[in-house]
Simulated assay, not measured.
Amino acid sequence: MFTAYAIITVVTILANAGIAAADFLGARFVLANSAEVGLPQTWIPWLAVLKAAGAAGLLLGLLGVPVVGVAAATGLVLFYLGAVAAHIRARVYYNFAFPGGYLALAAAAFALAVTR
């Protein structure tokens, strides 16, 4: 069970660190997607901080502070539920797999962290 927890958590950390970096750098796809769902560009750095904090918290959980890992996974699940809701509200479905995929990773990391 620890192997599954470690693999899913590492993948979730890398995915969130990667998208946070893209947010911080103002990648074109980030700006385009946020505009489509009606997200002001001024919010992007703040959302990137939340994603990076989630990745850091998952890493701390993996390194032996399980309460922080569970809290980080919880935060990421809530964050990506909001992202999915923003896509639904804006009726932007063609790239729904991205927030849905991040949500699935966060939910899997949460479930494995809790059962660990």
Rank of each mutant, 00 (worst) to 15 (best):
Y93M: 06
A6D: 01
P45I: 11
V68D: 07
R28M: 06
V65Y: 07
V84Q: 05
A20Y: 07
V68R: 04
Q41N: 13
L62I: 00
P40W: 13
N95C: 12
A22K: 05
L39H: 10
V30N: 00
L112K: 06
A109S: 15
V92Y: 04
N16G: 12
A71W: 03
A97E: 15
P99I: 09
S34Y: 15
V37M: 08
V10W: 14
A48S: 05
L39R: 10
P99T: 06
A104V: 03
I7L: 09
A17L: 15
Y80D: 02
N95S: 13
I8T: 03
A48Q: 02
T74E: 06
K51T: 04
A97T: 15
R89G: 03
A83V: 07
L63A: 05
A21N: 13
V30S: 00
I13R: 08
Y94A: 15
G82L: 06
R116Y: 15
A113Q: 11
G75L: 03
T42Q: 12
R116P: 06
T12R: 11
A90D: 04
V67H: 11
Y94H: 14
Y102E: 05
L25E: 14
L105Q: 00
G18S: 15
F98R: 07
L76R: 01
M1A: 12
T42V: 14
I7V: 12
G101F: 14
Y5E: 00
W43H: 14
T12G: 11
F24V: 11
L47W: 08
I44L: 10
Q41C: 12
L25D: 14
V30R: 01
V114C: 11
Y5W: 08
K51W: 05
A21G: 14
Y80N: 04
A111Y: 10
P66Q: 10
P45L: 10
A4D: 03
G100W: 12
L39S: 03
A104T: 02
T3V: 01
F110Y: 14
G57K: 04
F79P: 01
T74G: 03
G100S: 09
Y94K: 10
T42H: 13
G57E: 03
A111M: 12
A27H: 04
A20I: 12
W46D: 08
I8L: 09
A56H: 09
V10R: 08
Y93A: 09
K51C: 04
A35N: 14
A15S: 15
